[in-house]
Amino acid sequence: MMGNGFRITFWLFLSPVLLWLFLLIVIPHIDLLLLSFRGESDMGDPIWTLQNYKNFFIEPIYWYTFLRTALYAMITTFCTFILALPVSFYIVKLARPRTRGFLTVLLLLPFWVSELVRVYGWMILLRESGVFNYFMLKMGIIDQPIEMLYNDITMIMGLVYTSMLFMVVPLISVMESLDDSLIEAAHDLEASRFDILRTIIIPHCKPGITSGSIVVFMLALGNYLTPNLMGGKNSLWFTEQIYNQFIASFNWNQGAAFGFLLLVLSSVIIWVGLKVTRQNLGEVAS
């Protein structure tokens, strides 16, 4: 069956895919790596140098921002998981079958809307002249408006909010395959709720937890909009450093080095996550 027709279709499928992956993914990232090692000598001539990476380690603000971003992205991932677990459990195991479809649609809808609109909504709610402050003043809970934007907790809340969906959806799909009789049996044997959660539900949901965590972590790490608008000037998010190098200081080589470091960080953490849970990227993607 390996006639000529097979080879033609094979090349027909292969060539656009190769063009896409090599021209738009592989070559640009090699270029990113190469440019991160470029710089100028004292005479202003272009040379190969490690200076861009040295700057990163010498300037405390850079590596502090880097570590802070990584840590906060992890906290975001953890909070998202804690919030998403009961929600997906409720939808799959507790809601009546008829409300279930409705709740799932309701759950997905906000995430079709642009992240910018969602962040803007939070800004209207939380800022000093915002809706929350207005009602709290009216009800006499506070006498002075409080600025609820531009702090770390709000920023993490915003990140959790924007990436929620990517934890809930894999958790729902993995929980659907959890056999109710396992929980019933455990209940009959008088296991406590916590034990059921720890020994049945969480182990069963592991693949969903892994894929959800990877996506949420990556989205939080690479997010620019939410830290920038909700964290304000104090947000110190690493993507902002990259943006500043590119747009404000116009130091593209430095920016390339930062970009590459961020790429390494996200790859390493995702790789460790996959190793620890003994899964591979192919399984997680499907």
Binding site: L21, D31, L35, M218, I242, L263, S266
Partner: peptide, 27 residues
């Protein structure tokens, strides 16, 4: 390997995709 490469954009932060393409286009 090609399949793995195809999945790579899932785990590359969007900002990095943007700057690497900007750099490559400039080069």
């Amino acid at each position: 390997s090609l399949y793995f490469l195809m999945l790579a954009p899932l785990v590359i932060p969007g900002v990095i995709l943007g700057i690497s393409l900007l750099l490559a286009a400039n080069t």
